[in-house]
Nucleic acid binder design. Structure first.
Lengths: 202, 202, 202, 202
DNA sequence: CATGAATGAGTATTCATTCAT
DNA sequence: TATGAATGAATACTCATTCAT
């Protein structure tokens, strides 16, 4: 008796709506009405399924970071043997291979989320969790090559490069030579892992 | 006759007010009233000196990019001789040497601006101009070492790493090992300039 | 055939839900969803059993006044003989004896209802009916002592004191010395019934 | 230079607007738009002068209690000599003499405020402060007659009667015999002050 | 009877911008 | 130039009520 719940489906629609609208309007300018429209729902229903607008954003943050974790896992699973370098590159490819613009809306949203994380503590908490999780994984992969030495700094550098590519490709489409992101970061990795040293002074 | 114009000074105060408020509230949530208060002025005066809120933002973008250009020039001027590698590192240091958090408000604002550039065409125009200008300069410095070969991609990679460090340090304070940003990017540069190659497959 | 109606039971639950929620949120802020939750039911069911939210309130008003009538009757039944003064005091005790805070939720709701009666005609009608009924009964009891002389005014005064104790105990818990309400009102009654006169002027 | 402030005047208008609307609609149903209209202002302006709707209510609570304090002071000032009983009666008259309905909107608002005090802590705080202040003053006046003995309980009883008259006259106009409130409460006071005792059992 | 999703109207609040002083 | 009041539109959120299941 009673009506079967469709809350999960609706929440999905709404989160997808936010993703779309936020990518081209930003978070604050993404009105609940627009989000609802993008989701094909009435505005009132949005608040039936989500406490407030921020909760939609937080859900999106978690979905995007889950998505990335899956992609990384999939790439790592494809690496044959225990080639430590290949595993580092698989990680980098998971973020950049298909082109940062493969899913422009997701990239734009992620960059927007990064900025929101600066100001909204709740967003920061989830964003930080996602970033630390990714970073620790990369650190481990890097450590398998370098033996812990500077693994943290190397991982942070590579991860920063990835995030930077996201920002640049989202903010200035056409700036980054197509396809160069993945290969360049991999060359950076090679240099760092082989112990390249900057010129003496600095 | 008439009092001497203090417009420039007032505009400065207002732009500085936006910088402060935007760093901790974001652009949309930075109300004109708050900006005025941070500037020690009345709300009405803001619109006397600026057409609208966006104009303040655009002015800030230009100021921040001018500031960076000056820093780069200063660092380059200090490089003795024509050590091409040292010049690349001087550029990188101009962005990262004092620590990405040396001026946290400026960094947070810049990251916020990057996100706004995605959605506001007027912001994008100025942001893009600034980024392209920096990037071309870096490309030239890199080209002086590698001889144009892949200079663009290398420069983009290094520049992405810089932007990424900005994002990470602003969004997750404490994540990046203090002081590691500049040295890591310089090691990345060394690797790229020395022609490090990723492992064959990729 | 068909299942036995449980309408009366459901209505009871719902009215009890309103009582609980209204006591701590007030009538307007008591949402149907909250009332349903407090009753352990679904929101839809509330409107199956009640036309609208106001009907729940009106039912509550009637239940509370019926409750009071029962209490008064019970107290009066216990008075031996035809001691007219004792009957007045029994009436007063019915309202105040167990302490105004014996049932804080009911008292708070009654005070809230008094305020709603000012603005909602339908509520006023029932509230007035209840009040007049009580008041007439008290007037009669008082009249049995004083012989109609000023019975109305005396009854109104005592009844006002009761209502005032309700308000004060609900709005400012701890204000009224515990246990003093019943005894003080009875002393007031004694004074009025014995023909105390205020000082001449006034 | 600049524009002279008229904030105090505007706040007065707005508070008066709330008083009017609240008296006939209640607090929750008194929309900001209605309040503004009653004050002859635009809705936006209401929030320019008040943080939120509750702040208007809190200001009203303070104004009404200040008003009462003034009335009491004025009545007490008129009492000749140090007639302690006359002073108690002056206090009671300050609340009831002109008829509880002399200012029906104020009385209705006060009753509404009493009910809001049950649910809104901020309202309770101010309401309690007002009530305690009045009650302490009355207690002192009563103590001057009875010598502290039971002064608290006596004062509370008389104060409850006053509040009860407010409730009854606001909720059921016409219920209380016109003019009887003040005289009845004064007779109650006389009884209590002369030490009337209820019938033995109780 | 019962559930809980859905709607649509209503409401407080915010805020860029204007303007009288 | 400068002030701060004023406006009007926008927007998140609430909620009584309805209705498909």
């Amino acid at each position: 008796m009673g009506r079967p719940s469709n809350t999960e489906e609706r929440r999905q629609q709404i989160v997808a709506g936010l993703l779309r609208v936020m990518a081209e309007r930003g978070y604050e300018r993404a009105s609940v009405t627009e989000i609802a429209k993008a989701a094909g729902l009435s505005p009132g229903l949005v608040h039936y399924h989500f406490k407030d607008k921020q909760e939609i954003l937080l859900t999106l943050v978690e979905q995007l970071s889950a998505l990335v974790r899956e992609r990384v896992a999939a790439r790592l699973a494809r690496v044959k043997g225990d080639d430590a370098r290949a595993r580092v590159e698989a990680f980098l490819d998971a973020f950049l291979a298909t082109g940062a613009d493969a899913d422009p809306a997701a990239v734009a949203s992620w960059v927007t989320i990064s900025a929101e994380a600066i100001q909204q503590p709740e967003v920061r908490t989830l964003y930080e969790r996602a970033v630390r999780s990714d970073l620790e994984q990369l650190e481990e992969l890097v450590g398998a090559v370098t033996g812990k030495r500077k693994a943290r700094a190397v991982a942070a550098g590579l991860f920063a490069a990835i995030q930077g590519y996201f920002v640049l490709s989202a903010s200035v489409p056409g700036l980054v030579p197509p396809g160069s992101a993945a290969s360049t970061v991999k060359r950076m990795a090679a240099g760092l892992l082989d112990g390249a040293q900057p010129s003496e002074e600095a």
